[in-house]
Design a protein around this nucleic acid. Structure first.
Lengths: 202, 202
DNA sequence: GCGAAAACCTAGCGGTCATTCGAAATTGAA
DNA sequence: TTCAATTTCGAATGACCGCTAGGTTTTCGC
């Protein structure tokens, strides 16, 4: 009586299991995209059945959403509790770039998914639309703050500069993947950011 | 006797038919990528059967190869018989960018395919690897020529600058697709190229 | 130790995919 | 007009896809 119908919550290792699944999802989607990646491949990598995997994530699309959300949480943790502002924020991209070079799977995930998600009916479309808008906002604000601090040149137009920084970032990641990570992405990024500054940083 | 076994060559309209197929392939691959695009979709757009289509192109991979080759032929025709050099070559990218803005399908094709082709086993991988290498070579040479002509600043490093221009190009195209072509790609490109010049062009 | 929720499995469903095969239709040189 | 090469088709194949259903195993609060 007292026990029947009582929810007991998830197992102690459930969260760990889901992380395993998300890691495998990231790898499979980085290699083959959402369209080319399969639930079967993901399940095999985790060492569980498809049905078992679908107990944790209700559908392939739910997997995609979870892996993108997971990536954002990871990035937030990296930024730390206090987000820098102004010129500091801009140069923080170099640290993020260095971090990315240690995570080729993550770089691949975004390169592949951001491309195929340009299609309006792709399940990742809304995420990337929102993400580009948010990042551009963030960088524009950082540029404006930098101009107020006297660090960023006053002739820089925040909107176009933000867009170009993001474009450079995305484009470098693609070339980096084709060249098996054999060049340093931070260099060109720093050159661009330096060019926005009244006085470049060493 | 005289007629049996005599090859007669293809029909008069065969070449036109293949172009129709390639146009449909471009549209389908731009929307869904190689993985998500299907021979069924392509055949439906052309208004023929799958088997009929596969008479002209032996496989889905052959379709991809043909559509990429076709795109390169189109770009070559656009450049015209005489390839510009030095600073002229760099500014020619702005014309190419304007041309691209009239061909969203082509932009989409490259955005999606260049992403998913980062995977080494993707049938488009070798093509994009070669293409990036060729384009970087081309731009590096143009920068060096520009420096010799006194148009390009002598402190510009050709390799990194070439890489950044390509990255900017690719990254802008992705944002352009997400924003339904609502901004001008040439602006940021011109700003970057201007910055390489001793004296920017108006 | 019990008992039920949670997690997982096998098997299968309904559908799609790329491709093949044999036949029919079309084309165009003779 | 003939006739065979070329093009096209309908149907099918074998494999794979995302997902469901019902059952089994594991876990853990009591």
């Amino acid at each position: 009586m007292g026990r029947v119908g009582r929810p007991r919550g998830e197992y102690a290792k459930s969260a760990e299991r889901r992380l395993e699944i998300l890691d495998a999802t990231m790898a499979v989607f980085a290699e083959s995209g959402f369209h080319g990646g399969t639930i079967r491949d993901i399940a095999e990598r985790v060492g569980m059945s498809q049905a078992g995997l679908l107990h944790h994530f209700s559908s392939k699309q739910a997997l995609l959403e979870a892996v993108l959300a997971h990536r954002d949480e990871t990035a937030l943790k990296l930024l730390g509790p206090q987000t820098p502002s102004g010129a500091d924020m801009l140069y923080a991209f170099l640290q993020l770039s260095d971090f990315n070079e240690r995570m080729p799977g993550l770089v691949g995930l975004f390169a592949v998914l951001s491309g195929e998600s340009t299609a309006p009916d792709h399940p990742g479309h809304a995420y990337f639309l929102r993400r580009y808008a948010n990042i551009r906002s963030l960088i524009e604000r950082a540029i404006v703050e930098g101009q107020q601090d006297g660090d960023v040149r006053s002739d820089v137009q925040p909107g176009p500069a933000a867009r170009s920084l993001i474009a450079l970032w995305d484009g470098l990641q693609i070339q980096w993947l084709y060249e098996d990570g054999s060049f340093d992405m931070a260099g060109p990024l720093k050159a661009y950011i330096d060019d926005l500054m009244v006085v470049p940083r060493v």
